[in-house]
Amino acid sequence: MKNVFLFLFIFIPALAGGQNLTDVLKQGEDVFNKTCATGYCHGAQGAGGGAPRVSARGFDQTFINNTVTRGIPNTSMPPFTNALSRADLIAVVAYVAKLNGIANPTIAAVGGRDGLLEPPPVLSGDDARGRSLFFDAVRSFGRCSTCHEVNSIGIPVAAPIAAVPASVAALKTLETPRVSTVTVGGESMPALVLSNKSQAVLFYDLTTTPPVLRTEAPAAVQIRDGSNWHHSSAIGSYNEAELTSILTYLRAAAKP
C-alpha cells in the first residue's frame, strides 16, 4: 500500500497585531510555495496534488488553526509544531485563510521593533544565489528542498544536513549509509527506512521523484543494508557552478 506523504504546517494561536497584512500574506505565500506546494503535497495555490486541496474549501480560520495544530489522527497528516518559525507559521496560516476567502485573516506580532515581523536573515552574493537555487521552484522536484530542509523550509525526507561537503566532488560522491534496499513482492528498491515495527514498515521509496512514503506489512518486506542509489542521481538538474553556490549557502546557513 502506498501512502503519499502530506507535508503540512502548524499554527501558534495569535491575536491581531499591527503588521502590514500585505507583507504577511506575501511571506505566507512564499513559505507555502517552498514547503507545501509541491506536487505530492497541496499543489500550487493549494489547488491539490498528492495531498488534498486546501483552497476554496470554505474553511474558517479557527478550523485551519485547529486542524494544522493537532493534525488528523490516523492519517499521514501529523502536527508539525516545530516545523516553521513563529513568523512563518503566522504568515502561512494567514495565506491559507486568504485562499479560503478570508479577506482579513488574523495575524499577530512575533517580535522585533514596533511589533513587526522579524525579517529573514539577509544573504548576499553567492549565499543568496545558493539559497535561490536550493529552493528553486522552477526545477520542480529536481530542487534540493524536495528532500532537504534548511532553516525549517523544505521537505525533511533526508536527515538534517550535519556537515556540508567540502567540494562539489565530495557532494557528488557523498556516502548514503542510511539508504537500504527494500524488497516488497519481488520488487527491490532503494529506500530510507523510517520505522520497522511489528505493526508496519514505513519507508521512503527512492525510485520515484519525489520519494513516496510507503507503509507495508512487515511480513511482506525484506530489508538489506546498502543499495545502488547514489546522491549524484538526485542533483543532476544543477551544473558545477550552481552546486558551488549551493554549498556556499549551506555553509552560511550553518553559522550560528
Results as ranks from 00 to 15, higher is better:
residue 139 R to T: 00
residue 152 S to D: 14
residue 77 M to D: 13
residue 105 P to G: 02
residue 164 V to Y: 00
residue 176 T to Y: 13
residue 89 L to H: 13
residue 144 C to M: 02
residue 83 A to M: 11
residue 181 T to N: 06
residue 83 A to H: 06
residue 132 S to W: 00
residue 169 A to H: 14
residue 82 N to S: 14
residue 166 A to D: 10
residue 82 N to D: 15
residue 157 V to C: 05
residue 152 S to V: 01
residue 88 D to V: 09
residue 111 G to S: 04
residue 104 N to K: 15
residue 140 S to A: 10
residue 160 P to T: 12
residue 75 T to M: 07
residue 128 A to G: 04
residue 151 N to G: 07
residue 123 L to W: 11
residue 160 P to G: 13
residue 144 C to Y: 03
residue 103 A to T: 04
residue 168 V to R: 10
residue 110 V to E: 10
residue 195 S to Y: 06
residue 194 L to F: 09
residue 161 I to F: 08
residue 122 V to G: 09
residue 172 K to C: 01
residue 193 V to S: 04
residue 83 A to Q: 05
residue 166 A to H: 02
residue 129 R to W: 08
residue 98 K to W: 09
residue 163 A to P: 04
residue 185 G to T: 02
residue 177 P to Q: 07
residue 132 S to K: 09
residue 161 I to M: 13
residue 103 A to Q: 05
residue 172 K to V: 03
residue 95 Y to A: 06
residue 167 S to T: 14
residue 125 G to C: 07
residue 147 C to V: 01
residue 175 E to Y: 12
residue 162 A to G: 11
residue 181 T to A: 02
residue 164 V to N: 02
residue 175 E to S: 15
residue 186 G to Q: 12
residue 183 T to L: 13
residue 190 P to V: 02
residue 98 K to H: 01
residue 109 A to Q: 08
residue 188 S to L: 12
residue 134 F to A: 02
residue 149 E to V: 08
residue 132 S to Y: 02
residue 162 A to T: 08
residue 187 E to W: 12
residue 124 S to P: 09
residue 85 S to N: 10
